[in-house]
Amino acid sequence: MKIVSFWRDQKIRLGLLLNNEILEPALAESLLDPGERVFFSDAISFIRGGEFSRKTALRLVALRPVHALHRLDRVTLAAPILPSTILCAGSNYREHNDEKIGSPTSGKEPEFFVKTSDSVIGPDEAIQYDEKLTRKLDCETELGIVIGTPGRHISKERALEHVFGYTVVNDVTARDRQVRRSGDFTWYELGRGKAFDTSAPIGPCITTADEIPDPQVLGIHTRVNGELRQSSNTRSMIWSCADLIHFFSTNFTLKPGMVIITGTPAGTAWSADKELGGRWQPREGLVAAARYFLPGDIVECEIERIGILRNPVR
């Protein structure tokens, strides 16, 4: 099942993506009991409904009420979820670590930083290019884990039981705010470099966990103005999705609707920036970045079984 959010009558609505159509449960009220309707107000309400809301959604999909359907090409998608917290893991692909100068902990433990809902935009919304913040704007395609059931100190063995589904997140980064160097020493400022307006595009949908039983076998790609910049597979993660759920649950009680992003593979614009320690390593089929992102660029972040998240830079 694929969950989306979209605009109708100047409000964001929850929808179920059915190929080229969206089923809006709120328009199928006559088919729902009053106790079922509450789960379809937004994505987080649906996630909190657990198995009950999922079974209700499947019943609506089977009925496919015509009056509740919208053509996909006639609606504007929003971010499929507005998470209260985005827990972020950096330096989680060895190939990405190899193409950049590292901090003392790179590849030895997950980098831990946070983004909030204020950073989130949806498909086709513009990533802001703000020269007062950065002149080295970069993008990173990452798998996002959407938490479904709460837990603290979750074991790795039980971690995937807490997953509602998966989405695509673009970890937009201000490299000249992130990377700091003094002599031979490099450190990262992951606050100003990572969390700012439009720094977390999410979408186009959430694919539920039953459709992705193994999140470590997904192709992951980035295209910039049609050029293939990143191409890898989630099997190349240093720490798996289960590892990261365990890791973050040590600090936080993970709650329904929280999102964990899992790092990016090689091919970022940073890799071509020698000033900040970039070390581009040619890979078959990939085009090296000639520069950082500028207004007019189009970035497409794609993950197998989820879809393509497309955003312009303005």
Rank of each mutant, 00 (worst) to 15 (best):
L137E: 00
I238Q: 04
T149C: 10
G203Y: 09
V169G: 02
V179M: 02
G183A: 00
T141H: 04
L218K: 05
P150H: 05
V146A: 08
T149E: 13
T149M: 12
T141E: 06
L244H: 04
I145R: 01
T253H: 11
E227C: 11
D197M: 08
I145N: 00
H162R: 02
K194V: 07
E227R: 15
F185S: 09
G144R: 00
P150Q: 14
E140M: 04
W187P: 01
F248S: 03
L190H: 12
C139K: 12
R152Y: 14
F185Y: 13
E140L: 01
G144S: 06
A159F: 05
Q230W: 08
E142H: 02
I154N: 04
S199G: 02
T253V: 15
T167M: 09
R229D: 03
I154V: 09
R181W: 09
I238V: 10
I206R: 07
G183F: 12
H246M: 09
F248M: 03
L160Y: 15
D184Q: 09
I238A: 05
P150E: 10
I212E: 06
G144Q: 01
R223T: 14
I220A: 01
D176E: 08
V217N: 14
P150S: 08
V217P: 03
T250K: 10
H246L: 00
P256K: 01
D210R: 09
S236I: 08
P215E: 01
G148P: 00
S155I: 10
L143S: 04
G151N: 00
W187T: 11
T141C: 06
I245L: 03
F196P: 01
R235I: 12
Q230A: 10
F247M: 08
A242R: 06
G203E: 06
F196W: 14
P201H: 09
I202F: 11
F185N: 12
T198N: 05
R177T: 07
L137D: 05
D184V: 12
P204C: 14
N251A: 13
I147A: 07
T198R: 02
I202N: 04
E211K: 15
I145L: 03
A200K: 02
F252M: 13
M237L: 15
K194R: 07
S231Y: 10
L143I: 01
E211T: 11
C241M: 13
C241S: 14
Q178P: 09
C205S: 15
G226R: 07
T250P: 02
